[in-house]
Design a protein around this nucleic acid. Structure first.
Length: 591
DNA sequence: GCCGTTTTCGGCCCGACTGTTTTCAGTCG
C-alpha cells in the first residue's frame, strides 16, 4: 500500500511529465497542489483509498480524476496515465527540470529542437555548439546552462534542503549585518523558515529602508556569498558556500507588512488570500491591499492596508493566522486560530542530561541554566544502562545519582529538581530498568534508541507497550528519526496517540533541529486524539536550550495548544500529573 | 484538473528579473 509520501511523489511525477509535454498549466498545477496536500495529510490515504474511496473526494485538492488515480495506485500499484506518460517522455528529461533556471518550456524546447533526452546529451549539445542554432538559445543562456549542469553534478538531482536550526542562525547573522546599514528600518526572515518548516530550501530575507542601493550593496558584500544569481532594485538572489540560496527583498517601510505576509507564504496561503481579496473587490500583492481597479486594465484603487499583517487580515475579514499554520487549511482561515503554545509559555524542561551520562553540564550547571530560563521545574534524565554508548547508568549508579539530585535541591529554592531517567525502550517494548527501580524516580522519559529499522507493526507494538506502562510519563523522540539522515520508526501514530490520550502519557516533541520528533504531522494526529505533548530540549549542553524555538514551531505547526503542553503548565498541575498521570483532567491544567 | 457567498462552466495570484528580443517568454518565489 502506498504511503502518503509515495502518493505525493507519484502525483509530482505526473505533474512533471505533463509539464514537459506542454499540458495545460492549470492541470499541472492541480497535480502539484494535490501532491502537496498528500504530503501533509494526516490520514493514511492509501488505506482510505481501499476502505472508503469516496472519502478521498473530501480532501482539499482531490477531485474526481485525482481521487480515482490514487485509488488506482492503491489497488493496482500503478497508474495507467503515468505509464503512458513515461512511455512518451524520455526518463532523463525529468532530471533536467531540477537544473537552476530550467523549467518545463526549456526542457520541451531542448527535447524537440535539439534532441536532448538527458543530462549527457545536454552536455554534448552544449559542447558541440549544436545548441547555438536553436531559437532563444543565445550565448548567455547556453553559458547559464553550462553553469547549471556543473552545479548539478556537484549537488546531485535532489534539491538541497537545510535543517531549520541550521538555516535560521545564518538568516539572523545576515540580518544583524543588514540592520546596521544606513536607512534600514525593519528586517526579518520570511518564507518556510518563518513558517517553522523542519527543513528549508532557501532563505528569504526582507528589509525595509530608505535607500535600496545601500542595502543591495551591503547584501552583496556579505561573507559566504559564493555566486550572485540575480540582482535588481528590489530583489537579489545569491548562493552561499554550501549551496543554500538566499533571496533578499527590499521594500519601502510603509509596505513592510504586505511584503512580509507575501514572502512568508505559503504559496497556497497567498493564493487563498488573493482570491479572498478579489472576492471582496480588492487586490492583494506584496505592496499592499488596494481597492480593485475601476477599469480592467486601469490602475489599482486606493490603499486599504499594508504596514502590518494584522491590518491586512482584518481588512479581508479574517483573523491573523500565525505563520506556522499558513499552509493548507482550506476554509479554516475563516475561524479564529487556536490558542497555540508559545515559547514564552514553556516553564519547565523535562529531558536533560548531565555528565553522569553523555551531557556536558553538571547537575548544578543544568539547574542554574533552568533558573536563568525562568523555569519552575527541571527533570534530570540521564541515559539508562542499555545506552552504553552514552555512558548509561547502571541501577547502582542511578541510585547514587538520585541522591545527588535530591541533595542539590537545597541550592535552588525557586526550582523544583526532579530525579528522572531517559530509559531505553527495548526492541520488544520492555523498559531498560525494572519497575522497582523506575518507582524510585519522579519522572520517566522512555525513548527508542536502538532497533530503529523495525517494521511498522513491531514498532507500534513496542511503543504501545511503553505508553501503557503506568510508570512512564513521556515517550521521548518517538520515531528516532534524524532529519536528512535516518528515517527512524514508522509506527501507527493514530494508534499511539489514542493510547497516549487514554493513559495520560505525553508524547515528546524533541527540540533538537536534527530530530524535531514528533514531527508536525504527528503532533497534529496527537492533538486530534487529545493526547498530551511535551516539548523538551533534550539538553546535553547549554547551547541546546536555544533549540526550544524549533520544537515550539513544530508543535505550533501541529496545532498544539498551551493547555495540552505539559511544559506550559504551572507547577501544581505538572507535579500532580507526574504523581498520578492517569487521574489528570483538563480542569487541573494551567490556563 | 479543481472548484463554487458571480456554483456545473469559466475562471484559476502576481510581480521581479533575465535574456533574447524590439515587445515578450520563461523562471522563480
Amino acid at each position: 500500500m502506498p504511503t502518503n509520501a509515495e502518493i505525493a511523489a507519484t502525483l509530482t511525477a505526473i505533474a512533471d511529465l505533463l509539464d514537459i509535454t506542454g499540458a495545460n498549466a492549470f492541470k499541472v498545477n492541480a497535480y502539484r497542489k494535490a501532491a502537496r496536500v498528500a504530503e501533509s495529510e494526516v490520514q493514511d490515504l492509501g488505506a482510505l483509498a481501499q476502505s472508503d474511496p469516496a472519502a478521498l473526494r473530501k480532501v482539499e485538492g482531490f477531485g474526481e480524476s485525482i481521487a480515482a488515480k490514487i485509488v488506482e495506485l492503491a489497488t493496482t500499484q500503478r497508474i495507467d496515465e503515468l505509464e503512458r506518460l513515461r512511455s512518451e517522455v524520455p526518463a532523463g528529461l525529468l532530471e533536467l527540470l531540477t537544473l537552476q533556471g530550467v523549467g518545463p518550456k526549456t526542457v520541451h524546447l531542448l527535447w524537440n529542437k535539439a534532441n536532448v533526452t538527458d543530462l549527457q546529451s545536454l552536455k554534448s549539445a552544449i559542447d558541440s555548439g549544436a545548441l547555438a542554432t536553436v531559437e532563444r538559445m543565445g550565448a548567455k543562456t547556453i553559458e547559464n546552462l553550462r553553469t547549471a549542469v556543473a552545479a548539478h553534478e556537484v549537488a546531485g538531482s535532489q534539491p538541497l534542503r537545510f535543517r531549520l536550526g541550521q538555516a535560521v542562525p545564518i538568516a539572523e547573522s545576515m540580518l544583524t549585518v543588514l540592520r546596521t546599514t544606513a536607512g534600514v528600518r525593519q528586517a526579518a526572515f520570511a518564507g518556510s523558515a518563518r513558517r517553522g518548516r523542519e527543513t528549508v530550501g532557501d532563505l528569504d530575507l526582507l528589509v525595509s529602508c530608505d535607500n535600496h542601493e545601500a542595502v543591495r550593496q551591503a547584501f552583496l558584500e556579505l561573507p559566504f556569498i559564493e555566486r550572485v544569481l540575480a540582482h535588481g532594485d528590489t530583489r537579489c538572489s545569491a548562493l552561499l558556500t554550501g549551496g543554500m540560496q538566499v533571496d533578499l527583498r527590499i521594500v519601502d517601510d510603509a509596505v513592510f507588512g504586505a511584503a512580509l505576509l507575501y514572502f512568508t507564504g505559503s504559496k497556497d496561503h497567498n493564493v487563498f488570500l488573493r482570491e479572498r481579496a478579489i472576492a471582496a473587490g480588492m487586490r492583494l500583492n506584496e505592496y499592499g491591499l488596494h481597492e480593485a481597479p475601476k477599469a480592467a486594465d486601469g490602475p489599482v484603487g486606493s490603499l486599504v492596508a499594508a504596514s502590518n499583517e494584522e491590518s491586512i487580515y482584518a481588512a479581508l475579514g479574517l483573523h491573523c493566522w500565525p505563520p506556522e499554520l499558513r499552509e493548507l487549511h482550506g476554509g479554516d482561515f475563516d475561524q479564529p486560530p487556536p490558542d497555540l503554545v508559545d515559547v514564552s509559555h514553556v516553564r519547565s524542561e523535562l529531558h536533560a542530561h548531565t555528565t553522569a551520562s553523555d551531557g556536558s553540564l553538571s547537575i548544578h550547571e543544568l539547574a542554574s541554566l533552568a533558573v536563568s530560563r525562568g523555569f519552575h521545574t527541571l527533570a534530570i534524565t540521564d541515559h539508562s544502562k542499555a545506552s552504553a554508548q552514552a555512558n548509561g547508568l547502571s541501577v547502582e549508579r542511578l541510585r547514587r545519582h538520585i541522591d545527588a539530585i535530591r541533595a542539590a535541591q537545597d541550592d535552588f529554592p525557586t526550582l523544583r529538581l526532579l530525579a528522572g531517567s531517559e530509559v531505553d525502550i527495548l526492541a520488544d517494548g520492555r523498559l531498560d530498568y525494572d519497575d522497582e527501580t523506575l518507582a524510585l524516580l519522579d519522572l520517566v522519559v522512555a525513548s527508542p534508541h536502538a532497533a530503529l529499522r523495525q517494521e511498522p507493526a513491531a514498532a507500534t507494538k513496542r511503543l504501545l507497550r511503553a505508553i501503557e506502562h503506568p510508570l512512564v510519563h513521556i515517550i521521548g523522540h518517538p520515531t528516532g528519526r534524524i532529519l536528512l539522515g535516518r528515517e527512524g520508526l514508522s509506527p501507527d501514530m493514530h494508534e499511539l496517540s489514542a493510547a497516549a490520550a487514554e493513559h495520560g502519557t505525553a508524547l515528546e516533541v524533541n527540540c533538537h533541529w536534527s530530530r524535531l520528533d514528533l514531527r508536525d504531522t504527528h503532533v497534529k494526529i496527537a492533538v486530534g486524539a487529545g493526547a498530551l505533548v511535551a516539548i523538551d530540549c533534550d539538553i546535553h549542553g547549554a547551547e541546546d536550550a536555544g533549540n526550544l524555538r524549533y520544537g515550539v514551531a513544530t508543535a505550533r505547526r501541529g496545532g498544539l495548544m498551551r493547555t495540552s503542553c505539559v511544559n506550559a503548565w504551572d507547577p501544581q498541575a505538572l507535579h500532580s500529573w507526574l504523581r498520578n498521570k492517569r487521574g489528570v483532567r483538563p480542569s487541573l491544567m494551567a490556563r
